[in-house]
Write a protein that binds this DNA or RNA. Structure first.
Length: 694
DNA sequence: TTAGGGTTAG
């Protein structure tokens, strides 16, 4: 064990050794012992045998340069111990794992009799630090200059260097050498060759290697699964995973979880269940397997499951790292779980995880999606380094909060900073223009994207443009735009057009859009509701009934609207006319008082929007108890003045609630931030950032 | 000794 004295003593000893010109003596103090001032006991050690064992153990466990310096200093007092090649190798390994491969090399050079283990450890140190050239040179020297034969430990390492530097020719040569030495049946060599072939795009070689391996272990399977997953052959990856689970041998492990991960974005429930089962049955879970499972949930819009697993992980005693947190943060944003998001932010500060680009981008996104635009901006401004993802995140944050011009100014700042926007950055700026009704700016960026940056528009860009044109009332132009598209329009494209047709009561084109949508996504209730709204506005009640019956016959139910509020670390959910909340009485009383005051100020219910609900004959009374209003009243009952009101909805905000929220924000002098499925509405002093345009 | 984990748009 380390004592305070050893830690304090270390720099002095190091200072002495650094000053000596006989650098090689540094590592072999047997010759140096007479020069050292420190007392050395009769056997050349300093402690008893137990002390030596502890010292060696500490060397194995050492991960920080500071601890290593002190251990190294202690070893200099123990010449006999340090003369042991096993200790020298441990010290080399420790130096490399503390980030000093060149220190390990000095140690390596000063060793008089080097066997293969010395070379293997040194080559591995280089490879682990990405110093592939150094690794190749040492490998060549090993046999040519030092006449030490590479063994089954050497080849996996050098092959890894080939894979890491896309050096297929070298890999093929090594494969030949390995076969001559009869090492091609070695499982470690075989597994590394599989990874090398995948890395170099040689699918058939990887497959042959795998098929011909006499003994396959879990790493061989994982390497194949990872290969398929990373090369976009998701079905093959999952198939192989299923096969392994069915065979029960080898048993999937933590590595299997990580290997399958790339194949698990936007996948189906069956596959997610398969992987979850694998995860639950896994003997030994490590941090990577927890991270992979959380990421799988997060990447499949299963935010609640991701957050739940995160808390189970902490209960199981695992400390989350930056990778864990960067996976959970988007889930927090999705659920508007601001208190958890803030806790994670504090954790990153406490554990000094910043600067970390990916983590900071995720933090910024979490704040933006929880409605805290200022907090997101603070993270952005505090970042030492920013990449395209950082800029895209803040641009989209301003965009969805209704600050289109700020989004544009940031987009221009990004370009000036020398960063090239990518296609996703263009989606974010087009969406920002659309949310703020900046038609000409949006058209300019679409042109800029195709003509200056030569990006071929993706379906997402088309959907943004249709939204932009339609929302600003140019329905015919939007429809023409769709007809001229170079690809088949999808649900989002037609959905944007239909929504615009509802706003501008365009029956003719609305019917065309609805027709396409019913073919594309026949089960999606939202589009039936939109169509019935269009009919209702036109007073075509028979057609409204027709749509209602159509839904009934198909068994399609309208998604009930609900509003969520986070208070006291708990999410409170409200539905229309809800009386389930324990504070229901106070909530309705508050609402009553509020609405009376609203009417005094000239509020008139927008019964027009009541037509959104096709299940009920919506009258003013029904509008009064919409979930948004209940949620606002709930926060007013339970919080002190000035506290912002943050609400998240599962549908688009209704027009009457929007109208009422403007009045309420000025009566109660509070900021009201409502996140609907489309954007954020910030109400303050009777005005909304969406400018009533949404 | 070998394989494997994170962030952005709609």
């Amino acid at each position: 064990m380390l004592t305070r004295a050893t830690v304090v003593a270390a720099p002095t000893v190091l200072h002495v050794t650094r000053e000596t010109k006989h650098r090689r003596l540094l590592f072999f103090p047997r010759a140096l012992s007479h020069e050292l001032a420190a007392p050395v006991d009769a056997d050349g050690g300093g402690d008893d045998e137990g002390g030596s064992a502890a010292l060696i153990q500490a060397l194995d466990d050492c991960r920080s340069p500071r601890t290593l310096r002190s251990l190294h200093a202690r070893l200099l007092h123990r010449p006999r111990l340090l003369a042991d090649p096993a200790v020298q190798i441990k010290l080399m390994r420790a130096l490399a794992s503390c980030g000093d491969p060149h220190g390990a090399r000095r140690m390596f050079d000063s060793a008089p009799n080097k066997n293969a283990v010395f070379f293997n450890v040194m080559i591995r140190s280089y490879v682990n630090h990405g110093l592939h050239g150094h690794a190749f040179r040492l490998f060549a020297d090993m046999s040519l200059r030092h006449h030490v034969r590479p063994d089954n430990y050497t080849f996996p390492c050098v092959l890894k260097a080939c894979a890491g530097s896309d050096h297929l020719a070298g890999g093929l040569q090594l494969h030949g050498a390995v076969t001559k030495l009869g090492l091609d049946t070695n499982i470690f060599v075989g597994n590394t060759l599989i990874a090398l072939y995948w890395r170099c795009g040689r699918l058939s070689d990887a497959l042959r290697m795998f098929d011909e391996m006499p003994n396959k272990d879990v790493v061989s399977w994982n390497a194949m699964i990872a290969g398929y997953a990373q090369n976009g052959q998701y079905d093959r990856a999952i198939e192989l995973c299923e096969k392994m689970v069915a065979l029960r041998k080898p048993k999937p492990d933590a590595g299997t979880m990580a290997s399958i991960l790339p194949a698990m974005s936007n996948t189906n429930q069956t596959d997610i269940h398969l992987v979850r089962k694998m995860f639950d049955e896994m003997g030994k879970k490590d941090l990577v397997s927890w991270n992979a499972m959380i990421a799988i949930y997060a990447n499949n819009s299963m935010s609640a499951e991701a957050v739940e697993l995160f808390s189970r992980m902490e209960m199981a005693g695992f400390e989350p790292d930056a990778v864990t947190l960067a996976s959970v943060l988007p889930a927090c944003g999705d659920l508007s779980a601001l208190s958890l998001g803030k806790k994670i932010h504090e954790l990153t500060e406490r554990k000094r995880m910043r600067p970390n680009l990916v983590l900071e981008n995720a933090l910024m996104d979490m704040y933006a999606n929880c409605g805290c635009l200022e907090a997101a901006r603070e993270v952005f401004d505090g970042m030492k380094r920013k990449d395209v993802v950082s800029w895209t995140t803040i641009i989209s944050a301003y965009g969805m909060h209704g600050h289109g011009m700020k989004a544009i100014s940031l987009f221009e700042q990004m370009r000036k900073s020398g960063l090239k926007p990518d296609p996703i950055a263009f989606v974010s700026i087009l969406a920002a223009c659309s949310h703020s009704g900046l038609l000409n700016k949006g058209k300019y960026y679409f042109k800029c994207m195709t003509e200056c940056y030569h990006f071929v528009p993706r379906i997402e860009h088309y959907a943004c443009m249709v939204d932009l044109l339609g929302r600003s009332g140019h329905i015919d132009e939007a429809y023409d735009f769709i007809l001229k598209m170079s690809m088949k329009p999808n649900e989002r494209v037609w959905g944007a057009l239909l929504a615009a047709c509802r706003v501008y009561s365009n029956m003719e084109i609305g019917l065309i859009a609805a027709d396409h949508l019913f073919k594309l996504v026949p089960e999606q209730s939202g589009y039936y509701v939109l169509l019935s709204n269009i009919y209702a506005r036109a007073g075509r009640w028979e057609d409204v009934m027709l749509v209602r019956n159509l839904m009934k016959n198909k068994g399609i139910k309208k998604l009930p609207g609900c509003s969520n509020v986070e208070l006291w670390n708990k999410v409170h959910t409200f539905h229309i006319g809800d009386r389930l909340h324990p504070q229901s009485k106070e909530i309705y009383e508050k609402l009553d008082v509020l609405m009376r005051r609203l009417k005094e100020l000239g509020y008139v219910a927008e019964t027009d929007t009541a037509l959104h609900d096709i299940e009920e004959e919506d009258k003013e009374g029904h509008l009064l108890v919409h979930s948004e209003k209940l949620a606002i009243a709930f926060v007013l009952v339970n919080t002190t003045p000035k506290t912002p009101i943050r609400i998240t909805m599962n549908l688009r905000m209704c027009g009457d609630c929007h109208h009422a929220a403007k009045f309420i924000s000025s009566i109660v002098e509070r900021e009201i931030i409502i996140k609907d499925t489309n954007r954020f509405h910030h109400f303050e002093h009777g005005v909304c950032t969406c400018g009533d345009y949404w």
